[in-house]
């Protein structure tokens, strides 16, 4: 592993320079982001994209890139498709009904366990957003208090780090597989629940639970720093359209920069999309979500959009530890931008 590290590091620096070059001045010169600086004159390339969840500030980068014409600027005609859960989204990707999908890093690695099916074109999250929370009123004041209690864990998706945490801390808990609802927790049907720091955590706070009433475990801070969501395409698609993939990533990052520097406008755009989708649209929650996403997407300006090799390796390590899967896949193959 060590002898691979140096060339990988070199590649990483090159990628960083590439991305930084693409993002030059974007966080300080907003005026350039307000409209296309170079209008693409050729035929636009259609990309069909599907997010992994209903419209919310979690996908602000995509919305703002679309809204502000950053995709069009790169000659891309991005079409946002109906939301599909990861399996259905993968099927659509494989069948060619979709071009780009949202996947968690661990899920994407798991997908590739059997055969090589997805490659990462842009790593949006740079940290693990999963928190474990328990009510102090239910006697949860430390990690050791978890023992013997009920914990709600997502039955699909980003649950591996939670399981790894429970295993590492030798916590015997009754696992309650859950979907997305936090009612189990608010109704005290479970004592501990896994949540996303940008979403459910704030839902809890906005339902009248106070921060001081919660005992919170930040898995990322405890070393389970496996970044989650990224943008994925099939290797074939990537091979056929590497430039379009890079442009899509670059424009999405522009969208994120714009979103972070125009919070109010972005929240309005998100709320509008939520209303159109006929789902609950809470302005305060979306505001908080966008602020949290900034910590996740943009911990520092040099890290945006990049899948770092150490994160990749850490994810693989976690995957090996928590499953029987054997994945023979190089970092450069999984994240082809690294070799560009």
């Amino acid at each position: 592993m060590k002898n691979k590290l140096f060339p990988a590091l070199g590649v990483l620096i090159l990628i960083s320079l590439f991305v930084l070059g693409a993002c030059k001045g974007r966080d300080s010169e907003d005026s350039e982001l307000n409209g296309p600086s170079e209008v693409y004159t050729g035929d636009s390339f259609e990309i069909r994209y599907c997010s992994k969840w209903h419209p919310q500030a979690q996908f602000s980068g995509i919305y703002m890139a679309l809204e502000k014409g950053f995709y069009a600027q790169h000659g891309l005609d991005v079409k946002i498709q109906k939301v599909l859960q990861s399996d259905a989204a993968l099927d659509s990707l494989e069948s060619g009904a979709l071009d780009v999908i949202h996947l968690d890093l661990l899920a994407a690695l798991q997908v590739n366990a059997d055969s090589f099916r997805v490659v990462n074109i842009c790593q949006i999250a740079q940290r693990n957003p999963v928190l474990l929370v328990g009510k102090r009123s239910r006697g949860i004041n430390s990690i050791s208090d978890f023992a013997g209690k009920k914990i709600g864990v997502w039955r699909t998706g980003s649950n591996l780090s939670t399981y790894a945490f429970l295993e590492d801390h030798d916590l015997s808990m009754e696992i309650i597989p859950i979907d997305w609802s936090i009612s189990l927790f608010t109704e005290d049907a479970v004592d501990v629940i896994n949540i996303m720091c940008y979403n459910e955590y704030h839902q809890l706070l906005l339902s009248g639970i106070k921060e001081e009433d919660l005992f919170v475990v930040d898995l990322n801070a405890l070393g389970y720093s496996v970044p989650d969501e990224g943008l994925y395409v099939t290797p074939e698609f990537y091979k056929a359209h590497p430039e379009e993939c890079q442009n899509f990533a670059s424009a999405t990052i522009d969208g994120w920069f714009y979103a972070f520097s125009h919070i109010q406008e972005t929240v309005s755009v998100v709320l509008e999309r939520m209303r159109k989708a006929n789902i609950k649209a809470n302005k305060t929650l979306q505001h908080e979500m966008l602020n949290e996403m900034k910590k996740i997407v943009l911990p520092s300006t040099s890290e945006i959009g990049i899948l770092k090799e150490e994160d990749y390796l850490r994810a693989l390590e976690l995957l090996y530890k928590m499953s029987e899967l054997q994945i023979e896949m190089k970092y450069e193959d999984f994240y082809p931008h690294a070799t560009e």
């Binding site: 608010t186 706070l205 906005l206 339902s207 009248g208 609950k280 649209a281 809470n282 302005k283 305060t284 929650l285 505001h287």
Partner: peptide, 26 residues
């Protein structure tokens, strides 16, 4: 509701979209 959500209110924009806590913050 028990989560502070406005489940009925003459202003339909608030219904299910706001909790008393999110309004407090907003």
């Amino acid at each position: 509701s028990t989560t502070g959500t406005l489940v009925a209110h003459p202003d339909m924009n608030l219904v299910m979209n706001q909790t008393l806590f999110s309004m407090a913050k907003e």
